[in-house]
Design a protein around this nucleic acid. Structure first.
Ligand code: MN
Ligand code: MN
Ligand code: ZN
Ligand code: ZN
Lengths: 142, 142
DNA sequence: TCAATACTTTAGAATTAATATAATGTATTA
DNA sequence: TAATACATTATATTAATTCTAAAGTATTGA
Protein backbone atom coordinates (compact mmCIF):
# COMPACT_ATOMS: atom_id res chain seq x y z
CA UNK A 1 0.00 0.00 0.00
CA UNK A 2 1.63 3.23 -1.12
CA UNK A 3 1.57 6.40 0.88
CA UNK A 4 -0.97 7.90 -1.47
CA UNK A 5 -3.21 4.90 -0.95
CA UNK A 6 -3.04 5.50 2.75
CA UNK A 7 -4.03 9.13 2.24
CA UNK A 8 -6.94 8.08 0.06
CA UNK A 9 -7.97 5.66 2.76
CA UNK A 10 -7.82 8.34 5.45
CA UNK A 11 -9.81 10.73 3.30
CA UNK A 12 -12.47 8.15 2.46
CA UNK A 13 -12.79 7.17 6.12
CA UNK A 14 -13.24 10.85 6.94
CA UNK A 15 -16.07 11.03 4.45
CA UNK A 16 -14.10 13.01 1.89
CA UNK A 17 -13.35 12.26 -1.74
CA UNK A 18 -9.66 12.01 -2.50
CA UNK A 19 -9.09 15.09 -4.62
CA UNK A 20 -5.65 16.33 -5.59
CA UNK A 21 -5.92 19.26 -3.18
CA UNK A 22 -6.73 16.95 -0.27
CA UNK A 23 -4.03 14.46 -1.17
CA UNK A 24 -1.53 17.31 -1.21
CA UNK A 25 -2.66 18.31 2.25
CA UNK A 26 -2.20 14.70 3.39
CA UNK A 27 1.29 14.61 1.96
CA UNK A 28 2.30 17.54 4.08
CA UNK A 29 0.54 16.25 7.18
CA UNK A 30 1.27 12.55 7.17
CA UNK A 31 4.46 12.16 5.15
CA UNK A 32 6.66 13.37 7.97
CA UNK A 33 8.61 10.70 9.82
CA UNK A 34 7.95 12.49 13.05
CA UNK A 35 4.94 14.05 14.65
CA UNK A 36 3.97 17.21 12.90
CA UNK A 37 2.72 20.22 14.84
CA UNK A 38 1.37 23.14 12.87
CA UNK A 39 -0.92 26.12 12.57
CA UNK A 40 -3.20 26.57 9.58
CA UNK A 41 -1.06 29.45 8.40
CA UNK A 42 2.06 27.30 8.48
CA UNK A 43 0.32 24.45 6.70
CA UNK A 44 -0.85 26.73 3.92
CA UNK A 45 2.63 28.16 3.52
CA UNK A 46 4.20 24.72 3.24
CA UNK A 47 1.65 23.67 0.65
CA UNK A 48 2.25 26.81 -1.35
CA UNK A 49 6.01 26.30 -1.28
CA UNK A 50 6.11 22.70 -2.38
CA UNK A 51 3.09 22.18 -4.60
CA UNK A 52 2.29 23.34 -8.09
CA UNK A 53 -1.36 23.23 -7.21
CA UNK A 54 -3.35 25.92 -5.52
CA UNK A 55 -5.37 25.07 -2.43
CA UNK A 56 -7.84 27.52 -1.00
CA UNK A 57 -8.03 28.34 2.68
CA UNK A 58 -11.54 26.93 2.85
CA UNK A 59 -10.37 23.55 1.61
CA UNK A 60 -7.54 23.48 4.12
CA UNK A 61 -9.86 24.29 7.00
CA UNK A 62 -12.48 21.83 5.84
CA UNK A 63 -9.99 19.01 5.49
CA UNK A 64 -8.32 19.68 8.83
CA UNK A 65 -11.68 19.77 10.56
CA UNK A 66 -12.76 16.52 8.97
CA UNK A 67 -9.55 14.87 10.17
CA UNK A 68 -10.02 16.20 13.68
CA UNK A 69 -13.56 14.88 13.76
CA UNK A 70 -12.35 11.49 12.58
CA UNK A 71 -9.45 11.49 15.03
CA UNK A 72 -6.58 11.79 12.58
CA UNK A 73 -5.58 15.16 13.96
CA UNK A 74 -5.70 16.70 17.40
CA UNK A 75 -6.00 20.30 18.49
CA UNK A 76 -3.49 21.62 21.04
CA UNK A 77 -4.55 24.66 23.06
CA UNK A 78 -1.48 26.83 23.36
CA UNK A 79 -2.63 30.38 23.11
CA UNK A 80 -5.77 32.18 22.24
CA UNK A 81 -4.62 33.80 19.05
CA UNK A 82 -4.23 30.75 16.84
CA UNK A 83 -5.02 27.05 16.86
CA UNK A 84 -2.23 24.49 16.88
CA UNK A 85 -2.76 21.02 15.46
CA UNK A 86 -0.92 17.76 15.97
CA UNK A 87 -0.62 14.60 13.89
CA UNK A 88 0.12 12.69 17.08
CA UNK A 89 -3.37 11.86 18.26
CA UNK A 90 -2.35 9.76 21.25
CA UNK A 91 -2.69 11.07 24.77
CA UNK A 92 0.61 12.86 25.34
CA UNK A 93 2.32 15.92 26.76
CA UNK A 94 4.43 18.67 25.24
CA UNK A 95 7.42 20.83 25.65
CA UNK A 96 6.79 24.25 24.20
CA UNK A 97 9.90 26.08 23.14
CA UNK A 98 9.03 29.68 23.77
CA UNK A 99 11.89 30.98 21.66
CA UNK A 100 11.25 28.86 18.58
CA UNK A 101 7.49 28.70 19.11
CA UNK A 102 7.67 24.96 18.57
CA UNK A 103 5.90 22.04 20.21
CA UNK A 104 7.84 18.87 21.05
CA UNK A 105 6.14 15.64 22.03
CA UNK A 106 6.64 14.01 25.40
CA UNK A 107 5.38 10.47 25.38
CA UNK A 108 3.42 8.98 28.25
CA UNK A 109 6.27 6.64 29.14
CA UNK A 110 8.59 9.60 29.68
CA UNK A 111 6.47 10.87 32.54
CA UNK A 112 5.43 9.25 35.81
CA UNK A 113 1.70 8.99 36.16
CA UNK A 114 0.16 12.22 37.33
CA UNK A 115 -1.59 11.70 40.62
CA UNK A 116 -4.16 14.31 41.55
CA UNK A 117 -5.08 14.12 45.22
CA UNK A 118 -8.35 15.88 44.74
CA UNK A 119 -11.63 15.08 43.13
CA UNK A 120 -14.67 17.02 42.01
CA UNK A 121 -17.92 15.41 43.13
CA UNK A 122 -19.91 13.92 40.26
CA UNK A 123 -17.09 14.46 37.80
CA UNK A 124 -14.52 12.15 36.35
CA UNK A 125 -11.25 12.97 34.63
CA UNK A 126 -11.25 12.47 30.90
CA UNK A 127 -7.67 13.49 30.18
CA UNK A 128 -4.63 15.13 31.75
CA UNK A 129 -2.12 16.78 29.49
CA UNK A 130 0.56 19.28 30.37
CA UNK A 131 2.71 21.78 28.60
CA UNK A 132 6.24 22.28 29.89
CA UNK A 133 7.53 25.63 28.73
CA UNK A 134 11.21 25.60 27.92
CA UNK A 135 13.77 28.31 27.25
CA UNK A 136 17.49 28.44 26.54
CA UNK A 137 19.62 27.31 29.43
CA UNK A 138 22.30 30.00 29.36
CA UNK A 139 23.87 29.31 32.69
CA UNK A 140 27.52 30.18 33.13
CA UNK A 141 29.13 26.86 33.89
CA UNK A 142 31.37 26.71 36.95
CA UNK B 1 -5.60 49.50 54.34
CA UNK B 2 -8.99 49.27 52.70
CA UNK B 3 -9.69 47.15 49.67
CA UNK B 4 -9.88 50.22 47.51
CA UNK B 5 -6.47 51.29 48.75
CA UNK B 6 -5.14 47.93 47.64
CA UNK B 7 -6.67 48.39 44.21
CA UNK B 8 -5.15 51.84 43.93
CA UNK B 9 -1.83 50.35 44.91
CA UNK B 10 -2.09 47.62 42.29
CA UNK B 11 -3.04 50.14 39.63
CA UNK B 12 -0.22 52.51 40.54
CA UNK B 13 2.29 49.67 40.52
CA UNK B 14 1.00 48.71 37.09
CA UNK B 15 1.66 52.23 35.89
CA UNK B 16 -1.98 53.21 35.75
CA UNK B 17 -3.83 56.05 37.40
CA UNK B 18 -6.62 54.89 39.69
CA UNK B 19 -9.69 56.00 37.80
CA UNK B 20 -13.19 54.97 38.77
CA UNK B 21 -13.42 52.65 35.76
CA UNK B 22 -10.25 50.86 36.73
CA UNK B 23 -11.18 50.61 40.39
CA UNK B 24 -14.47 49.05 39.35
CA UNK B 25 -12.56 46.49 37.29
CA UNK B 26 -10.40 45.75 40.32
CA UNK B 27 -13.43 45.26 42.50
CA UNK B 28 -14.69 42.56 40.22
CA UNK B 29 -11.30 40.94 39.82
CA UNK B 30 -9.82 41.08 43.28
CA UNK B 31 -12.78 41.24 45.64
CA UNK B 32 -13.59 37.60 45.25
CA UNK B 33 -12.64 35.36 48.14
CA UNK B 34 -11.60 32.68 45.74
CA UNK B 35 -9.59 32.59 42.59
CA UNK B 36 -11.46 34.18 39.75
CA UNK B 37 -11.27 32.75 36.24
CA UNK B 38 -12.87 34.73 33.47
CA UNK B 39 -13.06 35.75 29.85
CA UNK B 40 -13.18 39.39 28.80
CA UNK B 41 -16.77 38.96 27.76
CA UNK B 42 -17.73 37.60 31.18
CA UNK B 43 -15.83 40.37 32.94
CA UNK B 44 -17.59 43.05 30.96
CA UNK B 45 -20.96 41.47 31.66
CA UNK B 46 -20.30 41.37 35.41
CA UNK B 47 -19.22 44.99 35.41
CA UNK B 48 -22.32 46.00 33.49
CA UNK B 49 -24.58 44.15 35.88
CA UNK B 50 -23.23 45.52 39.12
CA UNK B 51 -21.93 48.97 38.35
CA UNK B 52 -23.68 52.18 37.61
CA UNK B 53 -20.67 53.31 35.65
CA UNK B 54 -19.95 52.47 32.04
CA UNK B 55 -16.61 50.95 31.12
CA UNK B 56 -15.58 50.63 27.52
CA UNK B 57 -14.12 47.46 26.07
CA UNK B 58 -10.88 49.26 25.33
CA UNK B 59 -10.43 50.19 28.98
CA UNK B 60 -11.13 46.63 30.08
CA UNK B 61 -8.58 45.22 27.67
CA UNK B 62 -5.99 47.85 28.52
CA UNK B 63 -6.34 47.28 32.25
CA UNK B 64 -6.26 43.49 31.98
CA UNK B 65 -3.15 43.68 29.82
CA UNK B 66 -1.42 46.00 32.25
CA UNK B 67 -2.17 43.61 35.11
CA UNK B 68 -0.86 40.66 33.12
CA UNK B 69 2.33 42.52 32.35
CA UNK B 70 2.76 43.37 36.03
CA UNK B 71 1.94 39.83 37.11
CA UNK B 72 -1.39 40.48 38.83
CA UNK B 73 -3.24 38.33 36.30
CA UNK B 74 -2.31 35.27 34.33
CA UNK B 75 -3.52 34.03 30.97
CA UNK B 76 -4.67 30.42 30.72
CA UNK B 77 -4.52 28.87 27.25
CA UNK B 78 -7.63 26.78 26.87
CA UNK B 79 -8.80 27.17 23.33
CA UNK B 80 -8.07 29.36 20.40
CA UNK B 81 -11.33 31.20 20.25
CA UNK B 82 -11.16 33.18 23.47
CA UNK B 83 -8.63 34.07 26.15
CA UNK B 84 -9.16 32.95 29.71
CA UNK B 85 -7.63 34.88 32.60
CA UNK B 86 -6.90 33.96 36.18
CA UNK B 87 -6.43 35.98 39.36
CA UNK B 88 -4.38 33.12 40.79
CA UNK B 89 -0.94 33.97 39.48
CA UNK B 90 0.91 31.22 41.27
CA UNK B 91 2.19 28.19 39.42
CA UNK B 92 -0.77 25.81 39.47
CA UNK B 93 -2.84 23.35 37.49
CA UNK B 94 -6.50 23.22 36.50
CA UNK B 95 -9.51 21.08 36.11
CA UNK B 96 -11.54 22.19 33.15
CA UNK B 97 -15.19 21.28 33.34
CA UNK B 98 -16.13 20.75 29.72
CA UNK B 99 -19.83 20.92 30.44
CA UNK B 100 -19.83 24.11 32.49
CA UNK B 101 -16.86 25.62 30.65
CA UNK B 102 -15.33 26.44 34.01
CA UNK B 103 -11.78 26.33 35.29
CA UNK B 104 -11.06 25.02 38.79
CA UNK B 105 -7.71 25.46 40.51
CA UNK B 106 -5.55 22.54 41.54
CA UNK B 107 -2.86 23.63 43.92
CA UNK B 108 0.69 22.38 43.71
CA UNK B 109 0.33 20.45 46.96
CA UNK B 110 -2.55 18.45 45.52
CA UNK B 111 -0.31 16.94 42.87
CA UNK B 112 2.85 14.90 43.16
CA UNK B 113 5.80 16.53 41.47
CA UNK B 114 5.79 15.91 37.76
CA UNK B 115 8.93 14.10 36.75
CA UNK B 116 9.85 14.30 33.08
CA UNK B 117 12.43 11.69 32.14
CA UNK B 118 13.56 13.55 29.12
CA UNK B 119 15.50 16.71 28.45
CA UNK B 120 16.03 18.97 25.48
CA UNK B 121 19.72 19.89 25.03
CA UNK B 122 20.44 23.54 25.80
CA UNK B 123 16.97 24.09 27.20
CA UNK B 124 15.61 24.30 30.70
CA UNK B 125 12.07 23.97 31.92
CA UNK B 126 10.45 27.18 33.01
CA UNK B 127 7.06 25.83 34.04
CA UNK B 128 4.89 22.75 33.88
CA UNK B 129 1.15 23.16 34.08
CA UNK B 130 -1.57 20.75 33.14
CA UNK B 131 -5.25 20.84 32.40
CA UNK B 132 -7.33 17.89 33.52
CA UNK B 133 -10.52 17.80 31.53
CA UNK B 134 -13.48 16.60 33.54
CA UNK B 135 -16.99 15.54 32.63
CA UNK B 136 -20.01 14.21 34.48
CA UNK B 137 -19.50 10.79 36.00
CA UNK B 138 -22.79 9.15 35.04
CA UNK B 139 -21.86 5.59 35.77
CA UNK B 140 -24.58 3.20 36.82
CA UNK B 141 -23.54 2.20 40.33
CA UNK B 142 -23.38 -1.50 41.05
C1' DT C 1 -5.15 79.79 40.27
C1' DC C 2 -4.49 78.68 35.61
C1' DA C 3 -2.75 76.99 31.67
C1' DA C 4 0.27 73.60 29.79
C1' DT C 5 1.01 68.88 29.78
C1' DA C 6 0.19 64.11 30.44
C1' DC C 7 -2.71 60.51 30.92
C1' DT C 8 -7.72 58.33 30.14
C1' DT C 9 -11.80 57.01 28.23
C1' DT C 10 -14.44 55.97 24.54
C1' DA C 11 -16.78 55.02 20.10
C1' DG C 12 -15.79 53.27 16.32
C1' DA C 13 -12.51 51.45 12.86
C1' DA C 14 -9.10 47.99 11.68
C1' DT C 15 -7.17 43.48 12.03
C1' DT C 16 -7.21 38.68 11.85
C1' DA C 17 -8.40 33.74 12.64
C1' DA C 18 -12.09 31.23 11.67
C1' DT C 19 -16.43 30.12 9.46
C1' DA C 20 -20.15 30.54 6.05
C1' DT C 21 -21.95 31.26 1.40
C1' DA C 22 -22.89 30.63 -3.17
C1' DA C 23 -21.27 30.18 -7.75
C1' DT C 24 -18.54 27.27 -10.62
C1' DG C 25 -16.10 22.96 -11.43
C1' DT C 26 -15.55 17.87 -11.25
C1' DA C 27 -16.68 13.17 -10.32
C1' DT C 28 -20.07 9.61 -9.92
C1' DT C 29 -24.22 7.38 -11.11
C1' DA C 30 -27.96 5.61 -13.70
C1' DT D 1 -25.02 11.32 -21.62
C1' DA D 2 -27.66 13.63 -18.24
C1' DA D 3 -28.75 14.00 -13.63
C1' DT D 4 -26.95 14.16 -9.26
C1' DA D 5 -23.71 14.65 -5.60
C1' DC D 6 -19.69 16.38 -3.95
C1' DA D 7 -15.55 19.94 -4.19
C1' DT D 8 -13.17 24.09 -4.78
C1' DT D 9 -12.84 28.67 -4.62
C1' DA D 10 -13.35 33.66 -4.10
C1' DT D 11 -15.60 36.32 -1.36
C1' DA D 12 -18.42 37.65 2.57
C1' DT D 13 -19.30 37.29 7.41
C1' DT D 14 -18.35 36.78 12.29
C1' DA D 15 -16.21 37.66 16.50
C1' DA D 16 -12.21 38.40 19.54
C1' DT D 17 -8.84 41.54 19.84
C1' DT D 18 -6.25 45.63 18.87
C1' DC D 19 -5.81 50.25 17.21
C1' DT D 20 -6.99 55.16 16.53
C1' DA D 21 -8.18 59.57 17.24
C1' DA D 22 -11.02 62.77 19.49
C1' DA D 23 -12.81 64.45 23.70
C1' DG D 24 -12.42 64.25 28.81
C1' DT D 25 -9.86 64.48 33.27
C1' DA D 26 -5.97 64.80 36.32
C1' DT D 27 -1.48 66.64 37.41
C1' DT D 28 2.11 69.99 37.37
C1' DG D 29 4.50 74.13 37.94
C1' DA D 30 4.69 79.06 37.20
MN1 MN E 1 -8.32 36.41 17.70
MN1 MN F 1 -11.30 34.11 16.35
ZN1 ZN G 1 2.21 16.41 19.99
ZN1 ZN H 1 -6.41 29.09 38.22
Amino acid sequence: MTYVDQYIDKLRKSGLRPTKQRIKICEVLFNAEKTFHFTIKELVKIIENQANIKVSLATVYNTVHAFIKKGYLKEIPLNASQSYYDTNVTHHHHFFDEEENKLIDINQEDVDDINIKRTIPGKKIRSVEFIAKIVSDNQSQK
